[in-house]
Design a protein around this nucleic acid. Structure first.
Lengths: 335, 335
DNA sequence: AATATTATTTCAAGTACTTGAATTTTTTTG
DNA sequence: CAAAAAAATTCAAGTACTTGAAATAATATT
C-alpha cells in the first residue's frame, strides 16, 4: 500500500506538504499542489482511514447487532440503514446474534475495541435468558434499539406502530360485517404482544368478545403453528375471521383451511402482517398490514447520527413508531 | 474510553509495563501483573483495535461487496461467511451494490481506505454496464468471487455446481418417463446459463429434443415472468414437465397452471432450484434442487483466510463448485 | 561491602497521518 | 542591497499502543 511518505519521496517534499496539498490547502503553492495531486492519483494513493480514526477518536463506523440474514423484513431495515449511513460517510460493522456468539459481553467488547461511534441494536431473539441491559447501559456511545423493544426501554427506539396496525386490521374485518374474529398470537416478540393488544382493544371498543379458543399462540412453534391452527379450525364453532401475527402465519392458516375444505374468504377471512412478496403466487391474494422496513432503518440511522452529533448534550431518548398501512386484497370477504 | 495510559497512571507504572502485564508477559512480576489486570478489568479497559491494525498493517477486517439484504439465499452464504470469519477473529465491512453506490471505483477505494485484508466479491447484478475487472485486478489483497462468475474469471471462485444440479433435475424427470421437457431460463446471471447448459446437455445425452417454444427466458421480468409462462402454457402442445431456474419461477409456473386448470403433477411436472421455505404452505410440495448456501459461505471464507495467510506465495486461484442435491417431493408425476 | 547476576521496569522508536508553530524561501519595499 | 513582509515549506508533537534495548532495582556471590 502506497503511503503519504511514498508520495512525499517521489515529489521531494515533506509529508506535511503532501498532506496539505491533497486537502487542497491554499497555503501550498498551486504548482506543487497540482504536481502532488497528480502523483497521488498516478500511484492510486488511498489515505489510511485507521489513522484518521485514531487521531480524531471517531472511527466513522457504526456497530450493528443483528439477528440473522434470512429475514427480508430485517433486510429491509438494513437497507434503509445503509442508505443513510453510506450517505453520511459511515461504514458498518455487523455482529450476528445467531452466528457463533456465546456470550453477549463479547459482542459489546468487539464493538468497543473497534471503537464504533454508535450502535444499532436489534434485540436478540434466540438467546435464552438473554440479559444485555447492563451491557447496553455501560456502552459509552449512542444507541438506537430497532424493531423489538421491552417494557421500560430507556434507549432510543424505532419500530412499527403495531398496536395501530392491528387495530386497522381488526376494524377492517368488523367493517365488513365480521364479528367472530380470532387471533394468531406470537407472544415471544414485542411486536407480537403489541398486535395482540391492538386487536383486544379494538374488539373491546366495538363491544365484541375475544374468545380464548379462537386465539392461539404460535410463538416458536414449527411452521408458524400450522398444526395448532389446523386443530383450532377443525373444532366446531370456528371464527369467521382470523387476524394473524404475520403473513407466514396467515399463509399457514390458508394452508390449514385448504386442508379442511374451508373456502377463503367466503367461510374464513384472513389478514396478515408484513406484505411479504407471496401475493403474486398465492390465491386468494392476501389482505395484509404492510410495514415499511426501509423507513424504519432510515429513521433509526437518522436518530443515531443525530445522537452522535449531539453526544455532549444531555441524553433525551426518542421513541418513534412508524405507521403501518392496510393493503386490501382478496382474503377478507365482502359484505 | 479508558486507555493504557489511564491504567498506567492508576497503577503508577509505565505504559509498557501495562501493555506487557495485560498480555501475561512473565517478565512482569506476578504481583504487578495481577494488580494491573484487576485494574484493567475494573475499568473495563478495551484495547484499541485500530492501533493494533496500524502497527501490524492488518486490519483484521474482510470487505464484502454484497448485492442486497432481501435474498435469503445470499443471506445463507453470509451466514456461513460470518461463522468462519468470527471464529478466526475477523470483523466485516459490507458494501451493498444496491444501496446508493454510484461508481464502482468508490466501492474499492472505500475498502482500500479501511485497509481490509481481503475481499469477498458478490458480482453486482443491477449495475448496467458494470466493469469491475480493472478494479479487481488492481486490488492489492486476496479476493474470492462468490455465487456468480463470468467467462475467464481469473480469481478464486466459490459457487454451486449448477450444471450438475440441472442435470440431476432433468434426469429425474426423464427417469419418471417425462420426455417433453421445457425450461424456464434466467440468462442474466451465470447460474442461469449454467443450469440451462446442464439441461441442454442432459437432453442431448438422452437423445431428446430441446424445443425452443418450451424454453422461455424470464430474466429481469416482473414476477419471474408469470405472463410469459402463462402464454407458453396456454399454447397447444405444451410440455409435460418444466425445469425452472429457481423455486420462484416454479411457483409462478404453478400459479399459471392453476390459472389454466392444468393439474400438477398429473398434467405438468415442475422442478425448482433453491428449496426456499414455501414447501410448508404450497401444495403440491415442490420438488427442487437444494443448494447449500451456508457451505458456499464457509468455503469462500476458508479460501480467503488461506489466501491471506499465504499472501506472499505465488497466487494460484481456486475454483470450487459445491454440490447441489435433488429433493423429491410431489411436483413431479410418478410413472 | 563491592561486584556480579538476575529480575523488573522504563525508554524510545515506530505505525501513518494532521496541525499549528517555527523555519526557510521568495518577493516587496525603502 | 539590506530589511521587512509575505509566501511556502518543514518541524515536532500528538493519536494509543508494541517491542527490543537500555536502565534500574533487587538479590546472590565472593
Amino acid at each position: 500500500m502506497v503511503s503519504l511518505k511514498d508520495i512525499a519521496n517521489v515529489c521531494n517534499v515533506s509529508e506535511s506538504t503532501v498532506s496539505k496539498a491533497l486537502k487542497g490547502h491554499p497555503m501550498i503553492k498551486l504548482g506543487t499542489r497540482k504536481k502532488i495531486q497528480e502523483v497521488a492519483l498516478k500511484y492510486n494513493y488511498q489515505p489510511n482511514a485507521l489513522v484518521e480514526s485514531m487521531q480524531t477518536g471517531r472511527s466513522k463506523t457504526i456497530g450493528i447487532a443483528y439477528n440473522n440474514f434470512y429475514d427480508s423484513f430485517a433486510g429491509g431495515i438494513l437497507t434503509g440503514v445503509f442508505e443513510k449511513l453510506c450517505a453520511a460517510g459511515y461504514e458498518t460493522m455487523i455482529i450476528c446474534w445467531d452466528v457463533l456468539v456465546s456470550h453477549e459481553a463479547q459482542v459489546f467488547s468487539r464493538f468497543s475495541r473497534r471503537r464504533v461511534d454508535g450502535l444499532l441494536f436489534f434485540p436478540p431473539m434466540k438467546i435464552p435468558g438473554s440479559n444485555y441491559l447492563k451491557e447496553l447501559r455501560d456502552f459509552h456511545n449512542p444507541i438506537v434499539v430497532i424493531d423489538q423493544t421491552w417494557p421500560g426501554n430507556e434507549f432510543n427506539y424505532v419500530g412499527s406502530d403495531n398496536v395501530r396496525g392491528a387495530a386497522l386490521a381488526t376494524e377492517h374485518m368488523i367493517e365488513r360485517g365480521i364479528s367472530d374474529i380470532g387471533f394468531i398470537k406470537y407472544s415471544v416478540v414485542s411486536s407480537g404482544t403489541e398486535r395482540w393488544q391492538g386487536f383486544v382493544e379494538t374488539m373491546q371498543k366495538h363491544g365484541l368478545p375475544v374468545k380464548d379458543s379462537w386465539c392461539v399462540d404460535v410463538g416458536k412453534l414449527p411452521n408458524y403453528g400450522y398444526e395448532l391452527i389446523l386443530k383450532m379450525l377443525s373444532k366446531p364453532g370456528r371464527p369467521e375471521g382470523l387476524v394473524c401475527f404475520n403473513d407466514n402465519c396467515a399463509y399457514q392458516a390458508m394452508a390449514a383451511a385448504n386442508e379442511l375444505g374451508i373456502r377463503i374468504p367466503e367461510e374464513l377471512s384472513l389478514i396478515g402482517f408484513g406484505d411479504i412478496m407471496l401475493s403474486t403466487i398465492m390465491r386468494p391474494k392476501l389482505t395484509t398490514v404492510k410495514q415499511f422496513p426501509e423507513d424504519i432503518g432510515r429513521k433509526a440511522a437518522d436518530i443515531l447520527l443525530e445522537s452522535i452529533k449531539k453526544r455532549d448534550e444531555p441524553y433525551v431518548p426518542q421513541s418513534i413508531l412508524m405507521p403501518e398501512e392496510l393493503i386490501c386484497r382478496d382474503s377478507v370477504r365482502r359484505q
